[in-house]
Nucleic acid binder design. Structure first.
Lengths: 364, 364
DNA sequence: TTGTAGGCGTTATCAC
DNA sequence: GTGATAACGCCTACAA
């Protein structure tokens, strides 16, 4: 006569019997509580509690075509310096998503094409509800593909082609480098160099634009000082050397990444120079390396970005799937300047080529 | 008369009609190909191809109680220096798992208790097939919990209590520090210090044991030189200072982490010293920071570890769920010494307290 | 407000 | 070797 407690996993049926109601009522308690009489509801809720019942997502999914799963790509990082910031983003995203009742499914992909193949598989087999894309770039085929399938998605990174029409969150790189450069100007620096990436990279151009802006605002000509190369410590070192060997060596460096900044510090060290108030070096992304070596850097508000991404995604998923869905929305966040030993801690001391040392890395 | 191509997602039924067989036969082609006549099979396979059919995991899961999902915890990293190594592991794991037809679901948890709560939820709602645990430690309640529920799992990190009986993969930290210390001995170093963590941390004790071993093997007494504190750059700096201020300052540092090593380098720098062949500093984990600043370090073979974890997991899942399951197995991998500028590049040059410089970080 | 009927896509069991 | 039937757990009508 009893409902055989403990045999197998509890189902709606088990709960219903225990609470002396029908399956449907239990379902309503879960999905539309307002339809259920308070007294009945609390009786059902107690039964759920006692039986430790949890709705079976597969069964739910079969019926509703919703998995409560969101997909995020795990990227293979280059030198490991900048790679970690995406991991921090995914961590934050996972945490925030859990608060909204979503789980995060990660996958890998070597390029856009294989990422699209992953979408196809994930959508077909697991019925992923939405994707969060990272590392958007020019001529990005992913957004168009997803849009054509009516798959909800949000990008962390704006659509660099301008024509796209979807929800996104991004960090205003230009605002960051602009602020850093302005502050350097205010401290009396005149020859402020920029170490960046080749033109055309969206993120790189953006970060460079901020520096250029600020420098023009101070009345200086930025053209002569910029050096661009791919990302990496060696590239930064080489670029900085080129500038330092020029006729008018810079008195400060603003860099598009911590890797480049680290390279610049290496170049200075090669010349017996040490970064600091007289010779500031500013990186971007506030990576572990920056924290470790005391590099002033621009930090992306990753937690906030993750939060906003999930909010936008939830908005997308909240509306009826066909018909008028929510308007796409964006958020552009300001990076935060984290001041450390390598610069902006105070005004220059007055003797820019200070402290000649023998601090070069020993090479036996 | 036609099977209305393109209407909704293709199902077994769609494929069956197209191949002029029953649903069941299609299912057999997918799950037990050997039961199906080759000719029929290829006909079905073509239909699958043409229709771009993919089995619906939710429906499958409902029937089989298998989700083809494995759970991994995304950890919040401390100083961000060592945190990234777990992310590299998860990346590798995701990639390897995909090769086995599994997807990785990530989740967060603040402590063991909330991680166990996550297990409960994940098992109940998504019917996760297995978990890969990281950061095992003494008195770890997670393994017992999972074992008591008969949930398959593999740990990356050995069971430090010794009594556990499950599959695991780990990196032989002691072997790493032993090798590094031996090589320092061979180069003529006598006073080799160890910067580690407080006793009782499993991983820390292991790494320390290797150093102790090797030092005894060289005929030196390790006791006087060890310094232990929590992990972090500042702790390493302070610890190194204590040693360097002692009666007999060390001529080499072996460290339990790159953070500690970085601290040691800072301490040396405070004294106008620079690490190198005469004054080696060796870190652990080969993090991005190590690569960036040229720190010699011991690298964990994370890709291999991930591969083995998935293999062990697949073995667990391959057996019949009840009855005699596969025996637990382990793998202990050797870390690799990555030699860079801070040491082991060659023999000491003979003047151990070389290159006094003014290389301290400027403090305006 | 509560209960009943049907089906989502798949696989296991059993005939044929 | 192949095909019919039932069931997995849930949700969405609809009826009471």
């Amino acid at each position: 006569m009893d409902d055989r407690p403990g045999v197998g996993r509890p189902t709606l049926e088990t709960v219903a019997r225990r609470a002396r109601v029908s399956r449907q009522t239990v379902s309503n308690v879960l999905n539309s509580p307002h339809l259920v009489h308070p007294e009945t509801r609390s009786r059902v809720e107690r039964a759920i509690e006692v039986l430790r019942y949890r709705p079976h997502q597969a069964a739910r999914s079969l019926r509703t075509h919703r998995s409560r799963l969101i997909g995020v790509r795990m990227e293979a990082f280059g030198d490991g310096i900048n790679g970690s910031i995406l991991d921090r983003f995914i961590h934050a995203l996972t945490e925030v998503a859990e608060g909204h009742g979503y789980r995060v499914l990660v996958y890998t992909a070597a390029d856009d094409a294989s990422e699209i193949a992953a979408y196809e598989d994930l959508l077909g087999t697991h019925e992923i509800d939405a994707f969060i894309l990272t590392s958007t770039h020019r001529a990005d085929p992913r957004t168009a593909w997803l849009a054509s399938r009516n798959t909800p998605f949000v990008t962390f990174g704006r659509p660099w082609d301008g024509t796209e029409h979807h929800s996104w969150v991004d960090v205003d790189g230009a605002a960051g480098t602009r602020e850093a450069t302005r502050r350097l100007c205010a401290l009396g620096h005149q020859r402020i160099a920029f170490l960046g990436w080749p033109e055309g990279s969206g993120v790189g151009d953006d970060r460079r634009a901020g520096w250029e802006d600020a420098l023009r605002g101070c009345g200086w000509d930025p053209a002569a000082l910029v050096v661009a190369g791919p990302d990496g410590v060696d590239e930064g070192r080489e670029g900085a050397h080129r500038l330092l060997d020029g006729a008018v060596p810079p008195t400060a460096f603003v860099c598009a990444s911590d890797s480049l900044a680290l390279g610049a510090i290496g170049a200075l060290s090669d010349l017996g120079l040490v970064p600091g108030p007289d010779l500031p070096v500013i990186g971007f992304d506030d990576t572990a390396v920056a924290r470790a070596i005391g590099l002033t850097s621009l930090a992306q508000p990753l937690g906030q970005a993750a939060q906003l991404c999930v909010n936008l995604m939830a908005a997308l998923l909240g509306t009826d799937p066909d018909g008028t869905s929510t308007r796409p929305a964006h958020h552009l966040l300001r990076p935060e300047l984290v001041v450390r030993a390598t610069g902006l801690g105070g005004p220059p001391t007055g003797h820019p080529t200070a402290t000649i040392t023998s601090a070069r890395t020993p090479t036996s």
